[in-house]
Amino acid sequence: MRMFRYISRLYLKHFVIIAFALAFFFAGLDYMQHAAKLSSFNIKVLYLFYKGSHALNLLFPIALVLSMIVSKMVLIRSNALVSFYALGYSRKAVLRPFFLISFLLTLFYVGIHFTSFVNAEISAKQLLEGKKSHSVTHNIFVKYNDSFIYISEIIPSRKLAKKIRIYRILPDRELEIIYGPSAVFDGKGWVVEQARVVRKPNARKLGGKGLVIVKKPRVRTLEGFKPKILTSVFEGVRAYAIQDAFEAMRLLEKEHLQSKKVKAVLYHMIVTPFFAVFLVVIFFLAIPPHARSTNLTWTSFALVGITLFVWGIFYLLYRISLSGVVMPEFGILVPVALLGLAAIHSYIFRTNR
Rank of each mutant, 00 (worst) to 15 (best):
F4C: 01
R5Q: 10
S8L: 15
S8N: 09
K13T: 09
A19M: 09
F24E: 04
M32Q: 12
K37D: 11
S39W: 06
S39F: 11
V45W: 15
Y50S: 02
A55G: 05
L58Q: 13
F60L: 04
V65N: 09
N79G: 01
S83Y: 05
Y85V: 04
I101M: 07
L105W: 02
V110T: 08
F114A: 04
T115C: 00
T115L: 12
V118W: 00
E121C: 00
K125D: 13
L127P: 00
S133A: 08
N139M: 01
Y144C: 01
D146L: 01
S147E: 13
R158A: 09
K162G: 01
K163T: 09
I166K: 02
I166Q: 07
L170N: 11
P171F: 09
E174N: 12
I178V: 13
P181N: 13
D186I: 08
G189Y: 15
K200R: 10
L206F: 13
K209A: 08
I213S: 14
V214S: 12
V214W: 03
K215D: 13
K216Q: 14
T221F: 12
F225M: 03
V233M: 07
G236E: 02
Y240H: 03
Y240T: 11
I242H: 02
Q243A: 05
M249F: 10
K261N: 06
Y267S: 00
Y267F: 15
V271N: 06
V281K: 02
F284L: 05
L285E: 07
A286H: 07
H290V: 03
S293Y: 05
S293M: 04
N295T: 06
T299C: 02
G305Q: 02
T307Q: 06
V310G: 01
W311K: 06
L322Y: 09
S323E: 13
S323C: 01
M327S: 12
V334K: 05
V336I: 10
L339S: 11
L341W: 14
A342Q: 12
I344K: 12
Y347M: 03
Y347L: 08
F349P: 00
F349Q: 04
R350E: 04
T351S: 04
